[in-house]
Amino acid sequence: MSIEEQYRTRAKELLSGGAVKMVIGYGKGSNASRRRPIFISSADDVERLVLDDACITNLSGYLVSEGLLSDEKRVAVFLRPEGIRAINILAAESQLDADQIVIFGFDVAGNEVKALKGIHVEEFSDVITSIKESAPEAAEEELFEKIEKMSPQERFSFWQEEFSKCIKCYACRQACPMCYCRRCIVDSNQPQWVNTSSHTLGNFEWNIVRAFHLSGRCVECGNCDRACPVNIPLRLINHRMAEEVLGAFDHFAGTSKTQEPVLASFKKDDSETFIL
């Protein structure tokens, strides 16, 4: 039985027995190579679930939709390892109760889909540890290294070019599971920290703040990057920040549901070579 079949069967059992109130998974998209999130609450609909190598989106963000989990019922969700890490982060930041989340874990190697064993988030810690140990590269390692080798002026020009395209649509924010604030700093106008216009100055500020607020929390799922309508390579900034917190504080975001957020904790002997 294919994994898709197995997971449909499991979804059917869970829904018909009332063990979960909803299954969040993937369905057919607007063309053959696209998948879109679907929200199933009836056992009769499980045939609509699709699971293949085109299932890319990290669906964990839907779990923090207002009111979804407040009735304390369980919700099942299809997640890749990055999505599972996101559950840990959301739980660690008290945004959800991990016990309410039933995980349909999967991963894709090449174009082969494999199931990840487990139901609750703590059962996936081996998978997460092995990702940490394999030290994943940036999505575009070559470009990433090129940027690192540039002079600050060149880097500034590179990002100036990229950020000048930003239209401040905030799709990157909406797509990110960890961008759950009811009131984002860019929506605040008393005081107004970030220029609201989508001129390049305001875009610099916005993109810097976005990346900073996700430092040590981003799981590099790529939702933001794929959502960006003007293709700003946000993945590169995300990766740089993940590398920083790993190198400086040995912090790999989302290893457990009790992990301390890296910027809300400290060690007395944290590195401070840059402080005069």
Partner: peptide, 27 residues
């Protein structure tokens, strides 16, 4: 101690974006 961690991370970010670390100093 909290500030120190934040600066460490923010500093790396500014550097990656091309805002030279020489312009933002900590002591």
């Amino acid at each position: 101690y909290h500030a120190r961690r934040r600066w460490m991370v923010f500093r790396a970010l500014l550097d990656f974006i091309g805002i030279p670390p020489e312009r933002v100093k900590y002591s």
